[in-house]
Write a protein that binds this DNA or RNA. Structure first.
Lengths: 138, 138
DNA sequence: ATATTACCCTACTTATTTGGTAGAGTGATT
DNA sequence: AATCACTCTACCAAATAAGTAGGGTAATAT
């Protein structure tokens, strides 16, 4: 299940990408428009800033803004920052690999065999979508 | 993340599929061989029996056994019983659909758009794999 | 300069899910 | 009749997710 954190983060990114100019948008504005708890959204945006997706500006007229073009923001990166591993099981994860405690040999594990395929198919989708791709044309 | 319940359930199914004859296998045997807490496994196997994947036999020489051929057991069905929805978000789920509270219109939602693709790709993998397919040839 | 705006940070709380435990009950087999 | 092994109900603890609270700090406009 996708966490609300990821869902809200994606919504905020698309909201910023839809802006005409690149002026900073206030947290309160995004929260209101997208029906998100403002305080919760604050922590998510802060996270996206620290991981290089957003810039921020303090003081009057401040807020958050994208620091890359939507075409350059690939979903693999966004999902990994917001949600964590793309794989459903650590033993098939590329970026968060971990061996299973049970399971003497991954090559002999059916769960591993199945989940490898699932990971690859999900990865293909995320690699194939940038922020620009998931924007809805008006 | 895949729950242990699903992982253990899959392991139990493949364990039963690997048996030479179709004699019932005791819970304790499966638990021991696959490193699973026996009591936890009990509830999982019971669930798989109630949903039509396994049969059981009580008394001496009793246990659980497959009631279909591994080729006939499709992963979509197994995953839905053990893990629940395949979709990562209820608004793109085929079997567990639910509207989002926020989000006035799904067709205008970027999260929806992305997660639809993810669901389809995962579904394709699960549809394409039966229990027989994920068995490791010895 | 200073008041204001709006991001920044820490800590806490609550609800839900997950994983596991305990133990009595029931039905079949030998 | 005894044993074996599944069945059922109830409970519990840890982890995670989701959200709250509130003060701190930096930048900007006036």
């Amino acid at each position: 299940m996708l966490s609300k954190k990821t869902k809200y983060g994606l919504k905020a990114l698309t909201f910023l990408a839809r802006q005409k100019d690149q002026r900073p948008v206030q947290i309160s504005e995004i929260a209101k428009q997208e029906n998100i708890s403002q305080k919760f959204l604050e922590s998510i945006l802060l996270n996206l800033r620290k991981t290089g997706f957003l810039g921020s500006k303090k003081g009057k007229g401040g807020g958050y803004y994208l620091i890359k073009n939507p075409e350059e923001i690939v979903m693999t990166d966004v999902i990994r920052v917001l949600e964590g591993p793309i794989a459903m099981v650590p033993c098939v994860s590329l970026n968060f690999y971990e061996k299973c405690d049970d399971c003497p040999d991954e090559k002999l594990c059916s769960v591993n065999k199945l989940m490898l395929q699932v990971r690859d198919s999900a990865l293909a989708v995320y690699r194939n979508n940038t922020l620009a791709d998931i924007l809805i044309p008006t």
